Simulated scan of single mutants.
Amino acid sequence: MRLRFVLSQTGQGLSRNLAMTISVILVTFVSLTFVGAAALLQVQIGNLKNDWYDRVEVSAFMCPQNSATPACAGGEATAEQIDEIGALLESDAMAPYVDEIYVESKEAAYEAFQEQMEDTVWAQSLTVEQMQVSYRVKLVDPEQYQIVADELEGRPGVEVVVDQREQLEPLFLILNRTTLLSVGLAGVMIVTAVLLITTTIRLSAMSRRRETGIMRLVGASNFFIQLPFMLEGAIAALIGAGLAVGGLFLGVKYLIEGWLAGETPWVQFVDTADVWSVAPFLVLAAIVLAGISSIVTLGRYTKV
């Protein structure tokens, strides 16, 4: 009997403030969508780091003919200098950092250049002798790339040391800043959602002050009086959370899995399983939003 009464009061409150309830649902939907998108973006950044950092190589390019680089003032790298770099990379001191070493000869560099720059003036004008020998080093731990780079830089015969990670860091910086922007927008929308839920509960409580006064006179507890108002805010917030989860699911399924993943199969994108892993936190966030709003409002506006 009590449950039926609470549910009827909740239904009446939602119908009386229908426009405000819809506003709460929409604001909660938008705010939790931003929160979920930020979480999925962080998962995506983690996937990219795990995938790309494992492929990070440190490349040491030896001095070619007629190089204008100050490090190559002594001319083209000699066979002894090339062998010294190879011996350094294969030494016991570098063993904890170096996983694999690949030496690209002038001939191999020339063939690769011809394949990449086919039918260009550069491909037709360069010769094998103008190419340079290089070492490509796959690392045991990509996080320790600087140790290997420092050992190679400044060595006789080394023109330049290139770390692929330096090319990836700007991308991850942009993605991280995008995440912060999403979190900031989500924060603003969450505050808006709290204010709207608070307003909805307040209006509902004020419109039913007479009923709550009668309930208090017949001995109803504070919890029993406040429960319908709490359920109103919780239901609206949970519907918004459900819409946010549904929007993220559809976006990932059709935009990412259905389009991006097919266009760039070498990239490990987030999938719908990641959405379901984020979904419980969005539902929990909706409950917390409704709970905070109820605590702020009910203590004042359900008093006789």
Rank of each mutant, 00 (worst) to 15 (best):
V188W: 01
E57C: 07
L180T: 15
V183I: 00
A87N: 09
L248G: 09
G36P: 06
E111A: 09
Q130P: 01
V128R: 13
A149P: 10
W52I: 09
S67R: 03
P70W: 11
E263Q: 14
A193I: 10
R2Y: 12
A68E: 07
V161A: 07
I256F: 00
N66F: 08
M1H: 05
W122H: 10
S134E: 04
F34E: 12
V30E: 05
L238R: 09
A220F: 02
G291M: 03
K253Y: 02
L175E: 11
Q65W: 07
I239R: 02
L203H: 03
A87V: 06
G233R: 00
L181D: 12
I287A: 06
P280I: 07
L231G: 13
L18Y: 14
P228I: 07
G247Q: 05
F281L: 14
A71Y: 12
V24F: 13
E211V: 14
T127P: 08
G46D: 09
D274A: 09
E100P: 02
T212P: 03
Q81N: 11
V140Q: 15
V103L: 14
A186K: 04
I214P: 06
D141F: 14
E107F: 03
L181M: 14
L185F: 08
P96V: 02
R300T: 15
L171P: 05
I101E: 06
E129T: 09
P142E: 08
T10F: 02
A79T: 07
A60H: 03
A109L: 11
Q65D: 07
L175N: 10
L48C: 15
V158T: 02
W276A: 13
E107T: 09
G11F: 03
G154Y: 10
Q9G: 01
L243P: 00
V137T: 13
T179Q: 12
L14E: 04
G187M: 12
Q81H: 10
M189W: 11
A37T: 15
S105L: 02
D271P: 01
G11N: 06
Y254M: 05
A79N: 14
G213Y: 04
S182Y: 13
S8Q: 14
R177G: 11
A149K: 11
V304A: 05
L248A: 15
S221F: 15
V27Q: 04
E57Y: 10
Q44I: 10
L250Q: 14
V304C: 06
G240P: 04
T120Y: 05
G258Q: 08
V275G: 02
G258V: 05
F5P: 02
I287D: 08
R165P: 01
A38T: 00
L250P: 10
L32D: 07
T200M: 05
A149D: 10
S293I: 07
A60N: 04
E211D: 13
K106P: 01
L173E: 13
Y254L: 11
Y110E: 01
V43N: 05
V24S: 09
L255R: 08
D163E: 05
L126Q: 04
L48M: 15
